[in-house]
Design a protein around this nucleic acid. Structure first.
Lengths: 255, 255
DNA sequence: AGAAACCTTGTACAGCGTATAGATTACGCT
DNA sequence: AGCGTAATCTATACGCTGTACAAGGTTTCT
């Protein structure tokens, strides 16, 4: 039986419970299994990460995997922590906090682009892993030298991370794009008919956004737009020493 | 066989292809099936929305459902459009655009709280539905009276929506919270041991954020914090007539 | 040498989405 | 009036999924 998830996450730590020395030596380790799973997800998406397929890839039986990972849900957490630990963390050199946040955001976007399946994993337990914690620590340092309180520093980083996640979601290539090409234009025609002249604002704005979307510079534009909004939003927080949110600013009993 | 998704989405439109009048009268309609599925997801989560279970709920065989929905993926899109169309859209009365955006964000958050499973559905085709389009049109009007270009208006709304989605993701109650209560404290102890005195910044900030999280006012604080960042970020866009992003602001050939 | 610990395997179960084939129903047209 | 046909519904079946269970090997410790 596999060890607890927490111990598997920290399996490289000296104090982590070792994989017993009694039986035959394992043909596969947790690390190699996780790496294999990551490779699988990188190329074929998260839905291709099945116990049976991964086991076949590793040359062992399906059930033998459970010696090393516990469950599929655990495996996904281990995968996330693995790629987080692999992510590069070059030191922050720019004296401008805006530039440092840009750096964090840009690296995060590239991280998603290298591992789109990160968008498919939503498990709070990833926060327990050494890779995720190291990443968190690193990114918090981007706010060094700014007069932001601890609580706000966490909230600000979450704010940036959520923005990037949204941007990544929008940029993610659709795997069905090829098959849909023909159907899409046909559906668009039918949609135009159904819409008629209703929702003029949505049609105008959506049309403009859609055209811009097809333009070459567009994803860059959308990214730059959002990132600028993020930086402008953080500006007053970093500029003035807020400390904590004004008590009076919180509305009392709504919801 | 079921009709195309686009026609099912617009099934209430006068020009939509009718459900043929030849055979025996249907015991369920697409609408009733979708409503049932929504009710199922609202109470038991998205994973309980299976073809077989939904069919049982409706008193028909599993395969009979395919007369009305096409596929499970289509069903999810129909569900999303359904709840979007049901969402209330009270007229914007406040002369302050900040207040109008607050209203949009707050309503969106309540929308997620009523239907957490919306976070589990990620299908671009939802954009084709009448409910989603009506919602889009409505929310775009929150920027009426501001000098924001069409492209930027779309980007700004996306910016707000992505923030709310992130906030909802953080607030979503963990279904395993009950079972995990005991394991969680034990894992926390072990995590503390593994961490030792490494990552002091992460431990300090994470600890502060965690304590704040347990405090009563905290979710409200995090929400208010992020929302204020969003509004501050949009400020310069709405204040000055930007039109489009400055050409010089886009970095040339990175990535 | 024997026991205990560990790795690996095969089998099995309950569930999933859905392809296929066939039975039943009721309208529309001749 | 009756028949063809379109529409609805059912049962069966296939290939998947995660994983519980039981058994068989292999190694190290006592």
């Amino acid at each position: 039986m596999a060890r607890d998830l927490i111990d598997l996450l920290w399996r490289d730590h000296p104090d982590a419970p070792p994989s017993g020395s009694r039986g035959p030596k394992a043909r596969v380790t947790t690390t190699s299994a996780v790496d294999s799973a990551v490779a699988l997800a990188d190329t074929d998406g998260i839905e291709s990460v099945t116990i049976r397929r991964l086991a076949t890839e590793l040359g062992i039986s399906a059930m033998a995997l459970y010696t090393h990972v516990g469950s599929r849900d655990d495996l996904l957490v281990l995968m996330v922590d693995r790629v987080h630990s692999r992510q590069e963390r070059p030191p922050f050199v720019s004296p401008s906090w805006q530039e440092r946040i840009r750096q964090v955001a840009h690296a995060e976007l590239e991280h998603y682009e290298a591992h789109w399946w990160l968008l498919d994993v939503d498990d709070q337990r990833t926060a327990l892993g050494p890779g995720t914690i190291a990443k968190y620590d690193y990114e918090l340092h981007a706010f060094d030298g700014t007069p932001v309180s601890d609580v706000d520093r966490d909230a600000a980083l979450t704010f940036v991370a959520d923005f990037v996640r949204g941007a990544a979601r929008a940029r993610r290539p659709d795997p069905h794009a090829a098959d849909m090409a023909e159907t899409w234009t046909r559906w668009n025609d039918r949609l135009a008919h159904y819409l008629g002249d209703t929702h003029p604002l949505a049609q105008r704005v959506g049309g403009a956004a859609g055209e811009a979307m097809n333009a070459a510079y567009s994803p860059e534009h959308a990214w730059e737009f959002g990132l600028q909004r993020v930086l402008d939003g953080l500006e007053p927080l970093v500029a003035t020493s807020v400390g904590r949110a004004p008590e009076t600013g919180v509305r009392p009993t709504e919801e």
